[in-house]
Simulated assay, not measured.
Amino acid sequence: MSTKPAPGDIPVRRIDRILAFMSLGLLVLSIVCFFAIIIATGTGMEQADFGAGIWPTVTAIVYIAPPVAFALLLALLIMTLVRRARANKVR
């Protein structure tokens, strides 16, 4: 059961939580993929073809996930600032 927020606090919406956790998840996934590439090259997979199998996807995640996570955080920040500005305007 959730508790009601204090009268001066702005409640956290579901979309705020979704954006925050998606951003965090993308960053964690990117870091895991980055270390997978480092470990694969360090264990002697230099001869392996990083252009075949799952490796192109892992490499793409390393390049694409951090900017997407940053964009999600910016969207969350803008939404929060707009919501607070509207709440302060009403008061």
Rank of each mutant, 00 (worst) to 15 (best):
G8Y: 11
A48W: 13
A87M: 11
S23M: 10
G8N: 09
F35W: 07
F34Y: 15
R17Y: 08
F70D: 04
S23H: 05
P56D: 04
A87S: 08
P66Q: 08
M45D: 07
A52M: 15
A6G: 03
I31P: 00
L26N: 09
I18L: 05
I37W: 03
L81D: 03
A75D: 00
G8S: 10
C33Q: 07
G25S: 06
V58C: 11
L27Q: 10
P5I: 01
A48Y: 12
G42A: 06
A52N: 09
S30P: 11
I38E: 02
L27V: 14
I78F: 07
F34R: 05
S2F: 15
T43M: 03
A36E: 07
R91M: 05
I37F: 06
I38H: 06
A48E: 13
R84M: 13
E46V: 11
T3S: 02
T43Q: 03
A60F: 09
M1T: 07
L29Y: 09
P5F: 02
I64R: 15
A75V: 15
G25L: 04
V68E: 15
S2P: 07
G25D: 09
I64W: 14
P56M: 06
P66K: 10
V12P: 01
S2W: 15
I10H: 04
D16N: 09
R13F: 00
G51N: 14
E46S: 15
I18F: 01
V82I: 07
F70I: 11
R17E: 10
K89M: 00
D16R: 10
R13E: 05
P5Y: 02
G42K: 09
T80Y: 01
G25K: 07
T43V: 12
I39Q: 02
V68Q: 11
P67L: 14
L73K: 11
R14F: 14
I18C: 01
G53K: 09
M45A: 07
A75C: 12
F50Q: 06
R14N: 01
P66M: 11
A6L: 10
S30W: 01
A69T: 11
A75P: 07
A87R: 11
V82E: 12
V28F: 12
M79A: 10
G25R: 08
A69R: 03
P66D: 00
L74A: 13
I39N: 03
V58K: 07
L81R: 13
V32T: 08
V90A: 13
I78K: 05
F34Q: 01
A20Y: 04
V82W: 05
V12R: 02
R91P: 00
G42L: 09
I31Y: 15
T59Q: 13
T3G: 03
L74R: 14
A48I: 04
F35R: 13
L19N: 05
G42Q: 09
E46Q: 15
M22Y: 08
I31V: 10
I39C: 03
Q47D: 00
A48H: 07
L29W: 11
P56A: 03
T41L: 13
L29E: 04
K4S: 08
I78N: 04
L72Y: 08
